[in-house]
């Protein structure tokens, strides 16, 4: 191939790559723009009452707010994140400590494959077990469904957090006479503190954004902000989904406002993680 031909092909390939890259990022930016443009007016109009008011009914003139959804999301996501993180830390510690045993390899492979469970199936499962047993869709059932859904995420981040702790710290601690359980606390969680915190936040973000696990398990509470863990609740992602399928313009407005709020709710931890990571680099 002649030099000039290679040059030409080179330029072409680079042009294609740039074009595709831009093409890829374009819809993502468009999405952010749409959410901001459609979501800002209701947030500005209602201000704080958007998160303290109840959702509208089809005949409402006021667009109302998403109070039950916000509370439901925060509570169910927090419970799910907490339990998922604890479970993930324990599993990761176990597989790390017994890295070469067969059971740990099996656990690793299985939990990793977990990533492949469609979350709607998690919802079906929790409905047929927890909801039918408890008598109605409720916040606890929703939290359990979320827990199962974010378990792979928690495991992914936390196991890589713990894996980053070098052997020598562990060996040093053990040789100093630390008991294994203390090695856990001071070495792993201590040295990997930042990554563990990041992992917790990433898991929380996942939990907040999930919709399918909540479809059959949360119910749809609109006439009260919170009725208890064993009663129906609501969630922001669920509300957006249901209202997006409706024909009422006030519902659509609420959905966009909620979407923008969800975006903000998700971006805060992301920025926090940036701070954590930046500190780590220094």
């Amino acid at each position: 191939m002649g030099r000039s031909t290679r040059k030409a092909i080179n330029l072409l390939v680079i042009a294609v790559i740039v074009a595709l890259g831009v093409l890829g990022l374009l819809p993502l930016i468009w999405l952010l723009y749409s959410t901001a443009v459609n979501g800002l007016p209701p947030l500005l109009e209602k201000g704080l009452s958007f998160i303290t008011d109840l959702p509208p009914t089809p005949m409402s003139t006021d667009i109302g707010g998403i109070a039950p959804a916000l509370v439901g999301t925060l509570i169910s996501s927090s419970i799910a994140t907490l339990l998922a993180v604890v479970s993930a830390v324990i599993s990761s510690l176990f597989t790390r400590e017994y890295m070469y045993s067969r059971i740990s390899g099996f656990i690793e492979a299985v939990v990793r494959s977990f990533n492949g469970i469609p979350t709607i199936i998690v919802s079906m499962y929790v409905y047929t077990t927890v909801v039918l047993w408890m008598g109605e869709p409720n916040v606890v059932a929703a939290s359990i469904a979320l827990l199962i859904a974010v378990l792979p995420t928690a495991h992914y981040y936390l196991s890589s957090a713990l894996r980053s702790v070098e052997e020598r710290y562990r060996e040093a601690a053990l040789s100093l006479g630390f008991r294994r359980i203390h090695v856990l606390r001071y070495v792993y969680l201590g040295v990997a503190r930042r990554q563990v915190a990041s992992g917790i936040l990433m898991t929380f973000i996942r939990a907040v954004g999930e919709t399918a696990p909540l479809l059959f398990t949360m119910g749809f509470l609109t006439n009260s902000v919170f009725q208890g863990l064993n009663r129906p609740g609501n969630a922001i992602s669920l509300l957006i989904f249901i209202y997006a399928l409706s024909p009422y313009t006030n519902y659509h407005t609420v959905a966009w406002g909620a979407a923008l709020l969800l975006l903000i709710l998700v971006l805060i931890p992301v920025l926090l993680i940036e701070v954590l990571v930046k500190e780590a680099r220094k």
């Binding site: 959410t35 992602s237 989904f241 997006a244 959905a255 979407a259 969800l262 998700v266 992301v270």
Partner: peptide, 11 residues
């Protein structure tokens, strides 16, 4: 990557 899929669906 952190965006909830429901927002992709809405848009």
């Amino acid at each position: 990557g952190a965006l909830p899929t429901v927002i992709y669906g809405l848009w």
